[in-house]
């Protein structure tokens, strides 16, 4: 299967690989997995008091499309409010990377990871939406 140039670019030069301290109160961690292929993805967001994402890191063990999807979203979410980041749809990720139908689940994984990271952040802050977000 041929990967698009954008996938290859993110795969060969992944952006924002790494970790933040998961116990930092300003860090939300999302850990998601795709059992069909055994992929695991960790996405971490550093969020300021105004609810704006200052920085993002990821670690993904999976195929090129899963790595590219997570690398792409770390670029996208920087500077976004968590409310906006939460609205990112997997279809935008898949479109941007030209993912073939069999790899759509990789973009779903990235979307789930953003939502999980924000839910974790809200839980830490004990906000009113903490319950809803989980």
């Amino acid at each position: 299967m041929a990967y698009s140039n954008k996938v290859i670019d993110h795969y060969e030069n992944p952006r924002n690989v790494g970790s933040f301290d998961k116990n930092d109160p300003d860090v939300g961690t999302g850990l998601v997995g795709a059992p069909a292929c055994g992929d695991v993805m960790k996405l971490q967001l550093k969020i300021d008091d105004g609810g704006v994402i200052q920085d993002a890191r990821f670690k993904t063990f999976g195929c090129g499309s899963a790595i590219a999807s997570s690398s792409l979203v770390t670029e996208w979410v920087k500077g976004m409010s968590i409310d906006d980041a939460e609205k990112i749809q997997n279809s935008s990720i898949a479109d941007e990377l030209n993912l073939p139908p069999v790899k759509i689940h990789c973009s779903v994984l990235a979307e789930d990871a953003i939502k999980a990271a924000i839910a974790d952040y809200r839980r830490k802050k004990g906000g009113p939406q903490a319950e809803k977000a989980s």
């Binding site: 850990l31 997995g33 069909a36 695991v40």
Partner: peptide
């Protein structure tokens, strides 16, 4: 093979897999 059947897995399990990786 159908992801919609995916049960909720313990986050600790995914953490363990990630650490091992």
């Amino acid at each position: 093979r159908d992801e919609s059947n995916k049960p909720a897995l313990d986050p600790a399990f995914l953490g363990e897999i990630l650490e091992l990786r």
